[in-house]
Design a protein around this nucleic acid. Structure first.
Length: 872
DNA sequence: CCTTCCCGCCACGAG
DNA sequence: CTCGTGGCGGGAAGG
């Protein structure tokens, strides 16, 4: 088709508009326009259809330029709209191919013009063009580097490209490599990503939230009084509930974040929102999500008072995301008719089940490793990172700013360490990068998993490291929260680091359960703070209440902010009540680090962003809980949090129930990076090599649980689904060390543990054969305690961290530890921070208390819930 | 009018 | 300071 000629715009005609403006600053490009279209590469599939169409080309003038590539097109920005429009029309009309059209256009322009304009420029179309350039399943071997500048040239409007990239990144179809560069992964990781997102969504109980929201909407309709506060309140609550918000950004194993720079910070919004949005589809049964429901959940938080406004606001972003997803053919626009009328909605048309996938990611890596098993696991790992506070929320977070800073600092550290790719990916590492990095990463991941597993399994050993804090940390990861460890590869530096993140996500679960538990308490608290409290209003459904709790924090924040500053704001707001806290936290971290570092060889455990975690988390903390666990979790979290933050505070909790069980939690909200010693790594590798499992073993084992999946032995990797979930940070023993087990045996154990997390069905078997990868695959049983038992391995680390002593040791630290370690003095409870600064403490305290007990019990997990199916 | 959502200002942070 | 990013919302096009 067309190549169209692009138009050149030039055309005079065009006139208008935009051009002028258009400006673009950036883009210089533009100016010319290009034709759209273009050919698509073959590869791409696609697409074209739509695209193709295109526009016409115009000739016009012929000029054109387009020259260069013909293909691609470019668009122009500049082009005049009209023209385009026309073209568009034409296109539409004919569609496609036809060249004619263009001509027509040319011609005169006719009047027509139509619309193209707007539509032509739509994000969806742009996304199509972009997708057309790359194959769905790129050959990993090749370099799939994407240079934004090139893309910008073609597609025009630079700003739009970021939107697209952000969404694609959320699906792991691309990953940022460095400054203007992204790596194209196409759909190779899509299945895995979706599986993970589904899991996360389930963990957050998005399905339930959606139901609630729907319900509410109905209710509202009835009454509304205006907005009264009540309504508003309700909304808040709702939103809050929904929102728990806080999700984090879910990462895949292979992908992790590469560019350090970016990573951190802001990741919020679009990326996270996009993942959340996708989760909604994956958890709802009829895979249809109406726009308003999605808006509430995704945006939810904010809103506070003004719902209307808020609504507006972010909804725009939802459209952006939806357009990109539509281009990906994952969703379609539909309408649902409800009582009230029809509402716009989207239906999921993407893959329903993903077979588990293992990781393709590994593929790349594989070379080195391979073991599929391992890899698979790795994939499982997926981690979640937190996003930080959410973007959206800025409001909510008022306080965050400070936190953010902390995070940044941390990040910086991280970066330094890693060096990663920032812009320069190039560096030397590049080359190697792939291979090695990948490997390392894989390894790390594995390790992490193990660790997590361990942690889960047993008590948190790690404490060792510093753990000073009391033990509090432990936590059960289980579903609840999992932190997810992520490994970063880093080439450079010392070695790989593992990062954990804590997903705040957890919270949601709790919601689901109405239990009063701590959550409830919390919520209440929050409410108070806010002042709103009363939810009473409306009927408040009980549910609400519960939700509220979740929400509450957010709400509170909002409220505060509003009051404080005004609402508006956005950003500004920061009023954080307690910046101090932040400071404190930072201090702790630092302290922690130093302390830790000292011990370890490679020191560094960093948090990623605590903030996010915290922030949201504060409230969030609770989140995850699963059902049962919820409470417990909550407690734990709180505890952990406290401990973390404070430094110890609550050691109490530390005690975990069983050793195995508790994990440490990581309270820390953030992720940490952990460096692993290379040696250890190596060892792992070796191990792996030997038997895949071994590796695992070596690593510390961590347990992971996986959720549900585990339950069954599903073959394969359960990975997917569950994955990340838990990983606890536990301690990692060092692999090496792990005294107990020898490598061999133990490893096996570990492995399976890890792998499955649940594994277990027969643990024995697992042990037994280390080699079999399959097992790993299969395994999935629930982890269970048993594993824990196994765990002991982990104990290793424990305590005393030994630090460094052993070189090998891995460093994994559990997150908590770090946190813990640091003792900060401050002691504020995190929650408080986050959530509300307000005075919750008391309450909080209470909560915790209660929770604890419970918590202990729990353990793991639970989560079977989801399981179900598995996926697979 | 309401919905969809493009455009691009502007902030923020890394060089 | 410049430049890459990307939050965010005005306000226009589409229906």
């Amino acid at each position: 088709m067309s190549f169209a000629a692009l138009e050149n715009q030039t055309l005079t005609q065009q006139s208008h508009s935009e051009d002028d403006g258009f400006v673009a600053p950036r883009a210089p490009v533009n100016t010319q326009k290009l034709p759209s279209l273009c050919a698509v590469p073959a590869e791409s599939r696609l697409t074209m259809g739509p695209l193709t169409t295109p526009k016409k080309g115009r000739e016009v003038g012929s000029v054109d330029p387009w020259t260069p590539t013909s293909n691609l097109k470019m668009l122009i920005s500049a082009a005049s709209p009209e023209i385009r429009n026309r073209e568009k029309e034409l296109c539409m009309d004919n569609d496609g191919q036809e060249g004619l059209d263009p001509i027509q256009d040319l011609e005169n322009g006719e009047e027509s013009e139509k619309m193209i304009s707007r539509k032509e420029k739509s994000l969806g179309l742009l996304c199509h063009k972009f997708l057309a350039r790359y194959p769905d399943y790129p050959n990993p071997a090749v370099n799939n580097d994407i240079c934004l500048d090139d893309v910008a040239t073609e597609l025009v409007e630079r700003r739009r490209i970021y939107d697209i990239m952000n969404v694609l990144e959320s699906l792991h179809m691309v990953s940022r490599a460095a400054k203007n560069r992204y790596m194209w992964h196409g759909r190779t990781k899509l299945a895995q990503t979706l599986a993970i997102l589904k899991q996360v969504g389930e963990d957050h109980r998005y399905g339930q939230q959606m139901q609630q929201i729907r319900q509410r909407l109905l209710d509202k309709e009835f009454d509304f009084d205006g907005e009264d506060r009540e309504n508003e309140v309700m909304i808040d609550l709702e939103s809050s509930e929904l929102g728990q918000k806080e999700l984090f950004f879910v990462e895949l194993p292979g992908v992790e974040f590469k560019a350090a720079s970016v990573n951190s910070r802001k990741d919020k919004s679009l990326r996270v929102m996009s993942q959340k949005f996708v989760m909604l589809f994956l958890v709802s049964n009829p895979r249809v999500v109406s726009l308003d429901v999605a808006a509430k959940i995704l945006i939810g938080e904010d809103q506070v008072t003004d719902q209307d406004k808020n609504k507006f606001k972010k909804v725009r972003r939802l459209y952006d995301i939806a357009n990109v997803l539509r281009s990906l053919k994952l969703i379609e626009k539909v309408h649902v008719t409800e009582e009230r009328g029809r509402k716009p909605a989207f239906e999921w048309v993407g893959p329903e089940e993903f077979p588990q996938v293992k990781s393709e990611a590994s593929t790349s890596e594989s070379p080195s490793k391979k073991r599929s098993v391992l890899e698979s696991r790795a994939s499982l790992d997926n981690c979640a990172k937190n996003l930080f506070s959410s973007p959206e929320n800025k409001r909510s977070f008022t306080r965050h700013p400070s936190l953010i800073k902390l995070a940044k600092s941390i990040q910086d550290d991280r970066r330094k360490i890693n060096s990663a790719p920032s812009s320069p990916v190039k560096d030397s590492s590049n080359t190697d990068f792939p291979n090695k990095m990948a490997q390392l990463a894989a390894i790390c991941k594995i390790e992490l998993d193990q660790e997590t597993a361990d942690t889960n399994a047993h008590p948190a050993p790690h404490t060792p490291l510093a753990a000073p804090p009391a033990g509090s940390v432990t936590y059960i990861p289980a579903q609840c929260s999992p932190l997810i460890p992520v490994l970063l590869p880093q080439q450079r530096g010392s070695g790989p680091y593992a990062v954990y993140l804590h997903p705040s996500s957890l919270r949601p679960n709790p919601l689901a359960r109405p239990q009063p538990t701590s959550l409830a308490v919390r919520s209440m608290t929050f409410e108070d703070k806010t002042g709103q409290s009363p939810t009473g209003q409306s009927a408040a459904k009980s549910q609400l209440v519960s939700r509220a709790s979740d929400v509450s924090p957010l709400a509170l924040k909002r409220l505060r902010s509003d009051s404080a500053s005004e609402g508006s704001p956005s950003k500004a707001k920061r009023s954080d009540p307690s910046p101090k806290l932040c400071e404190i936290l930072q201090a702790r971290l630092k302290a922690r680090r130093s302390g830790q570092l000292t011990n370890r060889p490679s020191p560094r455990a960093l948090h990623l962003d605590p903030e996010f975690v915290n922030t949201p988390g504060g409230s969030a903390a609770a989140s995850q809980p699963l059902e049962q666990s919820l409470e417990v979790l909550l407690d734990k979290e709180d505890k952990t949090a406290n401990s973390d933050k404070e430094g110890g505070l609550t050691p109490i909790r530390a005690v975990p129930l069983t050793p195995g069980q508790l994990h440490n939690e990581t309270l820390v909200p953030a992720g940490y990076l952990i460096p692993i010693s290379q040696q250890s790594l190596i060892g792992y590798k070796e191990v792996q090599a030997s038997g895949g499992e071994a590796n695992k073993a070596s690593t510390p084992t961590y347990n992971i649980y996986q959720t549900p999946t585990a339950s069954r032995p599903v073959p394969a990797q359960e990975i997917t689904p569950t994955n990340f979930r838990f990983h606890r940070p536990a301690a990692s023993p060092h692999t090496t060390q792990q005294p107990p087990h020898l490598h061999s045996p133990s490893p096996a154990i570990l492995n399976f543990t890890l792998q499955n997390l649940g594994l277990i069905s027969s643990p024995g078997s697992a042990f037994v054969t280390p080699q079999t990868p399959e097992r790993s695959n299969t395994l999935p049983s629930p982890l269970t305690l048993q594993q824990r038992g196994m765990v002991f391995i982990k104990p290793v680390s424990p305590v005393p961290v030994q630090q460094t002593a052993s070189p090998h040791s891995v460093a994994l630290i559990s997150l908590q530890q770090p946190l813990m370690t640091t003792p900060k003095g401050t002691g504020l409870p995190q929650h408080s921070f986050f959530h509300t600064p307000v005075p919750l403490s008391p309450l909080a305290a209470v909560v915790t208390t209660g929770g604890h007990p419970a918590a202990k019990t729990v353990y793991i997990p639970q989560r079977k819930l989801d399981v179900t199916p598995e996926d697979s």
